[in-house]
Write a protein that binds this DNA or RNA. Structure first.
Lengths: 157, 157
DNA sequence: CCCTAACGTTTGTGACACTAACGCTAGGTC
DNA sequence: GACCTAGCGTTAGTGTCACAAACGTTAGGG
């Protein structure tokens, strides 16, 4: 006796083609994977993405006030407080009042922070490899280029 | 008298090149822009991204239980409750117990939901245009392809 | 009759981006 | 001098998103 199609089994994998091709949705999902991967790896080393971004910025652009660090990293200044708190507590960063403007803190990378950063650099590179595993080198470069165009376009305005 | 360079003005725009080129960071920033744009437009129409995804999935893959809808949309089943609650309250969806399995609710798109969805389709298309404005049609297709590869690779495992 | 498992639901968690407000300090202008 | 405006670091709170844990209900197999 042939199966009566009660419920019309409705394959759960039948995702809408429109939904699957929406760029905003694809971006969200890819970013979700990226977040999960990099958070996992960084957490295993006892660090966070914000801490890494702050350390890199201090190394590449030099000591700066918290407000300047906020602009450079894109981390909100009210979140920067805790980030620097953690880094200072770990001795990777020094927060000293600016003698020329006592509203400011001048944040400096310590030797400990610098060596810590080298380890994290290595780790972050691995996460990028894992994230971009299915892409060829040329495709990775193209993806970077396209994403940078989108970010620039919506950031500068 | 020439300006003495106290503070070493430290251009706030001096973002680290390494940080700016990190794919995971670029993905996060692009997704942030995408979220902001689509949330703004959908909120103006009194809808959310989750509601839209659910409506589209119901239209394209047919009536289904909440659990099946969760798998198809990627929305967690504990969040799906409120989404369907909102849609049902607005009369865009009907939630009826499955006579063949009383654990399940069969969710169906109503005519009101269908016409509402047509309006949202239009609106969502506009957000994609706005998001991808700086890219050529060929670049948009390439971006979709690359993002889909990343998503597929990290979803199927 | 158990046992296992799936379903819908409620409650809570954590990361992220952001707003609002506060005390303090700097740098004018009257 | 007194006054005002604005930037700084800080705290507390908001909203979205993805998810975990647990509970009562129902199905179905040994």
């Amino acid at each position: 006796m042939p199966e009566r199609d009660r419920h019309v089994p409705t394959d759960p994998l039948a995702v809408s083609a429109r939904l699957r091709s929406l760029p905003s949705r694809l971006l969200g999902r890819a970013a979700m994977h990226a977040d999960r991967i990099s958070n996992t790896h960084l957490a295993a080393a006892g660090a966070t993405r914000w801490q890494y971004a702050t350390l890199v910025t201090l190394r590449d652009a030099g000591p700066a006030s918290q407000a300047t660090l906020s602009e450079r990293t894109g981390i909100h200044r009210s979140d920067m407080v805790a980030v620097l708190g953690g880094l200072a507590e770990a001795g990777q960063v020094e927060r000293a009042p600016d003698p020329d403007d006592r509203r400011r803190n001048i944040v400096t990378l310590t030797p400990a922070g610098r060596s810590r950063l080298r380890a994290l650099d290595h780790l972050v590179d691995q996460t990028q490899q894992e994230l971009l595993a299915p892409l060829t080198p040329a495709e990775r470069a193209e993806l970077r280029r396209l994403l940078q165009q989108i970010d620039d376009h919506h950031s500068t305005r």
